[in-house]
Computed example of a mutant assay.
Amino acid sequence: MSLSLSAALVIFVITIATSLLGLFANPKLIDRCLFRPYWFLRRRQYDTFVLSGFVHADLMHLIFNMLTFYFFGFLLERAIGSTHFLLLYAAGLVISHLGTYFKHKKNPEYATLGASGAISAILFAAIVLFPDQKLFIIPIPVPIPAPLFAIGYLAYTWYAARNPRGRINHDAHLGGAITGLVYVALLAPSAYGYFFANLF
């Protein structure tokens, strides 16, 4: 597969470009893309179900998500192909937003953004397929096993969801994680045998 045709590369570039544009040049873009469960049906803001996944709350939010995407997204696309990669990414985004919708649909003040649900789906699907994958994160001096990273990732988001700040949708991580795990179970159920065999 040519890099120029990589779905992961397209998503990666568009997400970074759109987020930086909204953060530093046109804040109205971020406001336009916010997912607001209360207003989703009332004002027919259907496109925000997708658009909110291409903007971020701040630079650290963007960097964290894009580093996770970089370490796991391109690897996963090479393994399952661009079509399945796009389907999984879209499913992670939509399913994680469904949970947010039902949790906050009566709160007119709630608004959220970020690709967390979609990236969580990619992360957990990749970890099942490549349990021996390791990654380096500055300033940690040793490689981190992918399953351990996933546990830390969920632990952080569990804490952050109970101590919310700004408009980052930490609740979306769990929905995305489940989506990724189920997608692999449907696409390549035998991968779980390899995963558990190589987990320890």
Rank of each mutant, 00 (worst) to 15 (best):
F149W: 00
S116M: 07
Q133A: 13
R162N: 11
A121S: 11
F136M: 13
A161V: 10
L123F: 13
F136G: 13
P131W: 07
R162Q: 12
G166R: 01
F149M: 09
K134H: 11
P143M: 09
A121I: 11
A155F: 15
L129R: 08
P139Q: 00
T157A: 14
P141T: 00
Y159W: 14
R165G: 09
A155D: 13
L113T: 14
I138Q: 09
V128A: 09
Y156Q: 10
V128K: 02
I127F: 06
D132Q: 15
P141D: 06
V142D: 12
A126W: 10
D132Y: 01
A121E: 06
P164K: 05
A115L: 04
T112V: 14
S120H: 02
S116V: 13
Y156G: 00
Y156P: 04
I151N: 01
A160H: 09
P143K: 03
G166L: 00
P164A: 04
I138P: 11
N163Y: 08
I122N: 07
R167L: 15
F136D: 13
A150H: 05
R165Y: 10
A150I: 05
L135D: 06
I138Y: 14
T157F: 14
V128P: 03
A155I: 11
R167P: 06
R167K: 15
G117A: 02
S116H: 10
S120V: 02
I137E: 04
P145S: 08
I138S: 14
K134R: 15
T157I: 09
F136S: 15
A146E: 08
N163H: 15
Y159Q: 03
A115Q: 09
W158T: 04
A160L: 07
T112I: 15
G166V: 04
A125H: 03
S120E: 06
L129V: 09
F130N: 11
R165M: 01
T157R: 14
A118F: 01
L129S: 12
A126I: 09
F130W: 07
G117T: 02
P141K: 00
I127G: 05
I138E: 13
P147E: 04
A118W: 05
A150F: 01
S120Q: 02
I137Q: 05
A126E: 10
P131S: 07
R162P: 03
I122V: 15
P147G: 03
I138G: 12
N163A: 07
D132I: 00
A146I: 02
P141A: 00
A160I: 06
P141M: 02
N163Q: 07
A146F: 04
